[in-house]
């Protein structure tokens, strides 16, 4: 069976596969947003230890 040929199974599971794909995309967007929020909070404050060094 050639890999390019679509098996009947792919048709049957199409809806489910699209759903899982969308969930994964959503998860990626969420992790990215969380990272963005956490990193940019406090206007890029230096960690305490580095602040002490720079003073």
């Amino acid at each position: 069976m050639a890999l390019s040929k679509e098996h009947e199974l792919h048709q049957r599971r199409k809806g489910r596969n699209i759903g899982v794909g969308l969930l994964l995309v959503g998860f990626i967007v969420l992790v990215f947003s969380l990272t963005f929020v956490k990193v940019t909070r406090g206007d890029f404050e230096l960690p305490k230890a580095e602040q002490e060094v720079s003073q």
């Binding site: 969420l30 947003s33 929020v37």
Partner: peptide, 11 residues
């Protein structure tokens, strides 16, 4: 909490 953090926590 930040809205994104609230959403993620509840989720």
């Amino acid at each position: 909490m930040h809205p994104v953090e609230i959403f993620a926590s509840i989720l």
